[in-house]
Amino acid sequence: MKAVVFGGTAGIGRAVAQELAARGDAVFLLGRDEASLRRSAADLAARHPEQAQGGWALCDLEDPTGFAAALDAADAALDGFDAVVITAAMFASQAELEADVELARRLTTANFANTVAFCEHVRVRLLSRGGGWLTAVSSVAGDRGRKPVAIYGASKAGLSAYLEALDHRFRASGLWVLCVKPGFVKTAMTSGLKAPPFAGEPAGVAADIVAAMDRKRPLVYTPGVWRFVMLVIRSLPRFVMRKIDF
């Protein structure tokens, strides 16, 4: 693959970039912190000096006006990418979001509207060259309206619905759309939250994502056990959901 990883300097994105590079894929990084992009690009180069180096460009999920230019840079560096992985997203706790309407607006805009806009740029480019992989990290939080993730989960629910429809609509044209639903993963994003049982780590989640891309799957829960956890949660009646704090 010739892959673009948006959010590839940290968390799941860094692990996906390392995983792709380890198996010989060229990787181009997008992110909003130049110093961190430089360090991550150096990391990939030091790990796999024999490989063609992808490079990096600045791209901020909160600034959709920069999306096209960032993808142009990736296309130029990779001579036409065929895979895009989007791990960039905003996160805040329900308490923080309830206390700050502006933050809630920014988060839902970035995680839903802007992510969809980015995917649309990618979709057009990939379809024009006969298809490819479009992978975006949504969340188990979008599977059900739940108290502790009411706003963040809503942004991910929208994204999941969009990615599912995209798969239905364009699979026949060669676009492999993958919706990733991580359960709790230990990263900076979730630091400070109490880790539940079955908490994942970035490296394992990245391996699951790349394996699902290889198999052209439309949906992956990671760690895998979350598929069953969410099956239960989705089937709980409303009066139970009102009572529990999950």
Partner: peptide, 10 residues
Amino acid sequence: FANRILSFDP
């Protein structure tokens, strides 16, 4: 998770 290799001189 802060695991980046910053440089290696062969």
